[in-house]
Amino acid sequence: MEEKKLYVSSGPHIRGKESVSSLMLSVLLALLPALLAGVYLFGLRALWVVLVSVGSCELFEWGWCALTHRQNTLRDLSAAVTGLLLGLSLSPTVPLWLPPVGAFFAIVVVKQLYGGLGKNFLNPALAGRCFLFAWAPLMSSWVAPRCADAVSAATPLAVMKTLSLPPESLLSSFLGFKGGCIGEVSAAALLLGAAFLLLRGVIRLRIPLSYLLTVAVLTFLFPRGNERILWMSHQLLSGGLLLGAFFMATDYVTSPTTARGQLLYGVFCGVLTVLIRYFGSYPEGVSFSILIMNLLVWTLDRLHMRRVFGHGKEART
């Protein structure tokens, strides 16, 4: 008679078809339009920067796993996503030794020291990028798009820091014809990727929408100059806002899981972004504000955790 085995395992017992690697693959695919736009606008040099970044992230991930005798985690593709996000948020002019430095910080210090994917409390790609701001002059030299001889150009945000509207038209800004980071310039490409992720159900609209709406409302209410709508639109389209809101603030590991927590998270991200853009010493505040909110994820989640019936107040903590 056939012996029936009874498997006992801990929860969760209901599993979907999605796995970490398939989610990560979707994110990689969704970032492809932004990468292509960046390469089209800034030339092959941009591709090299991104490739070096992805390659070094993979290398450090593999190296760490080999060093600590852990199972190789390259196949979950999270290192590739980190590398791609890091590469896309760099200027196309950075020297090629810079991405590996950021990759080392992102993969080894921010992620693996805490035990790998799912244990880190900061978004690795963002932390890597913020670490690279230590080389500020290298990080903030920009070039004009579609220029063969690398004419240096100011980003719209740097122009707006001086309280004037950028020279680009809204349409060219939307399509990406402006100075900036490789993957951040083309709002059209980013929105295409974001739509793909939303349709596939990889990300939900709560965080990006509350984030973008907050920035929109604040910049509309407090414009610098007379053209409210134009100012607001440029603030929304420039810098890393779209990349950050759709691809970085929505990172599963470092964003809240409760619905109200997510809404609050987005709103606070927006407030901090506008605060840093208006009053800070950096022209762009998206990376730092998401990092700061990463610190509060645990708090936001706890605030809105459902209380277990029958338990006292203690059950919330």
């Binding site: 430095v101 670490f131 701001f133 230590a134 080389w135 500020a136 002059p137 290298l138």
Partner: peptide
């Protein structure tokens, strides 16, 4: 100095 990590 431009190669140095000023954040340190």
């Amino acid at each position: 100095e431009e190669y140095a990590c000023s954040y340190l």
